[in-house]
């Protein structure tokens, strides 16, 4: 089973990388970019019988730092 884990900073946590990307986009002349948040995509290939609980635990224990980050689990096939 292919699973994508999307890790992003919690809203309200300042995102210096997102801000720098935003600034760079404006520097390239792209207008109308309201905000940029940078995150991380972790693509897992796991056994088909992997439970949702196990995926959740992987995210909480390692893939995301719950102090500053949220995660979203997306099963892609």
């Amino acid at each position: 089973m292919k699973v994508n884990v999307h890790v992003s900073l919690k809203s309200g946590v300042l995102d210096p990388q997102g801000r720098a990307i935003h600034h760079a986009l404006e520097g390239l002349g792209f207008s109308g970019v309201n905000d940029v948040r940078a995150g991380r995509l972790i693509a897992l290939d796991v056994a088909d019988d992997t439970s949702d609980e196990a995926l959740d635990e992987m995210c909480r224990k390692l893939l995301a730092n719950m102090v500053i980050e949220n995660y979203r689990i997306e099963k892609v096939g």
Partner: peptide, 11 residues
């Protein structure tokens, strides 16, 4: 310890 260390604000 509580908290986290993030990327420097100035990148």
């Amino acid at each position: 310890l509580p908290g986290a260390l993030m990327r420097n604000a100035g990148i």
